[in-house]
Design a protein around this nucleic acid. Structure first.
Ligand code: SF4
Ligand code: SF4
Lengths: 130, 130
DNA sequence: CCCATATCGGACTCTTTCAGTCCTACATAG
DNA sequence: CTATGTAGGACTGAAAGAGTCCGATATGGG
């Protein structure tokens, strides 16, 4: 499919929101202002927190905020945090394996492609989304 | 998901095979030598033909062969021929549209990302797979 | 003229992934 | 102690992916 999941898109929007805000923001605030499903975004935020790029505080006046500077968060990291299958093929992933491996004649080129795609995704950070 | 479909991978393998051969090859030959499902590959070859990068001859001693030089077939073209959704997001596709368009705050950056990914996929051709 | 060999193309199944929802539990400031 | 948050599991429905099956059509060679 070669397509980013909605989870990643929403994650990027949310991180952009946090970056613009500079302060703690609630899921409700982000989901309302950006027309994103509250429940869905709530899950995404939890995943982003698990990764460590944002932190959370529970209870009244709680919410989420960035842990890092916007230019310290490349898109790659967001993709990795929100997507299980973030590689161009199975064989270029380290937690997957393809049954065709060994017989396949395009593994080399695929690895090289993967590298280049990662380079692109690494060169863009949340700071570029502002 | 950000992953190439098996259809694309098999298509690349088949094109690589045709390039190495330089002559007409049957689907059976390609599927056998590369451990790819015959039926599945047959469909893929039809799509590649429809695109115009290969031609076919039916009947006895028939098969498929390249229409273009290997370095004239970039990966992008193969992806476009074999995959409906070949873009990073819906809004960067020209035959799709996203309901969030207009409200979305990351459309610009996504378009720029799309361009860069295309540049990468365009820089690699079948000639690089040999 | 026939037949073996190919491509052509539609329909179909099974599995996985995706997007989104729902509901309960837990933490905490005021 | 309560309103306002996050935490997290389970669940649904729709869509995409991979692969199969079968009948039709074209064609070179005996
Ligand atoms: S080994 Fe070949 S078929 Fe398997 S994932 Fe890598 S490229 Fe794709
Ligand atoms: S408009 Fe926003 S949400 Fe819709 S596809 Fe483009 S980036 Fe994704």
């Amino acid at each position: 499919m070669l397509r980013l999941s909605k989870r990643v898109e929403y994650g990027l929007v949310a991180l952009q929101h946090l970056a613009k805000r500079g302060d703690v923001a609630t899921v409700r605030e982000i989901s309302d202002e950006n027309n994103i499903s509250y429940d869905l975004l709530a899950k995404i935020m939890q995943d982003l927190k698990r990764d460590g790029m944002i932190y959370s505080s529970q209870g009244v006046r709680g919410g989420y905020a960035l842990m890092l500077a916007p230019n310290q968060i490349p898109v790659t990291r967001v993709v990795d945090a929100l997507e299980d299958q973030s590689t161009i093929t199975e064989c270029t992933s380290d937690h997957e394996s393809c049954t065709r491996e060994g017989a396949c004649t395009i593994q080399g080129p695929m690895h090289r492609l993967q590298e280049q795609v990662e380079r692109v995704l690494n060169s863009v950070t949340i700071a570029q989304l502002l």
